[in-house]
Amino acid sequence: MAAIKIIVQNLSLQYSDGTESLRDINLDIPANNITVLFGPAGGGKSSLLRCLNRLNDLTEVQTITGKILLDGENILDPKTDVIALRRRVGMVFARPVVLPMSIRQNLTYGLELAGEKHKSKLEEAVERSLKLAALWEEVKDRLEEAAVALSGGQQQRLCLARVLANQPEVILLDEPTSGLDPISTGKVEAALQELKKNYTIILVPHSVQQAARTADFAAFFLQGELVEAAEGKEIFTHPKEKRTEDYVEGRFG
């Protein structure tokens, strides 16, 4: 079994409107694997992702209890340097959001925020991250163009590359291919398979099929509860829980 990168301990989260979106979650997330969080709408998958890089700080959260240990350090600790944390734990959203600037500027944005000024370093990051996101060949001659000019699939890979330029350790992806065609989806999934060698990847898939295709490990969420977590092979063929089985076999959801 791979080394554990993130340990979620007794995590509960309640939004200020009273919604209890996570209830006593315990989950170990292995390094250098794709961990898939799946389940029907409103299960708390996005809520958990947003805890992992403290993006929840931007929303109205009532109470959050429990711990999230990243390499042994509790990131929910108020003393955590959230800026540094968000560089270590990058996030790709469901809808590709390119910033209103050129392709190159999108890629160097994160590094420039961190104060990186060396042209060669930035240049190197642009090429490296685009190659990792399988976008280099398509855009290498048009880096100065506005990023919105790219197709939806290219924009989403640009968003992935933009996260990679920050050299994170963990990559969170929340239904990254929900708006993409099958070919673009294939490219993103292939890139993730390559990336997991060096990164810890946590993916909320947009379908059970994608979950089964991509998961090394998988966790099934139902109404704020973690029903079952196991290796991908296990959970999609021999789920232990009846509720998991029903969902995986498409009886609800």
Binding site: L55, M91, L113
Partner: peptide, 18 residues
């Protein structure tokens, strides 16, 4: 200005002021 720009910028390690 779309909220998503803010979310993305913050998620890339930006401060509010940046």
């Amino acid at each position: 200005v779309p909220q998503s720009f803010r979310t993305v910028s913050i998620s890339l390690g930006g401060t509010r002021w940046q």
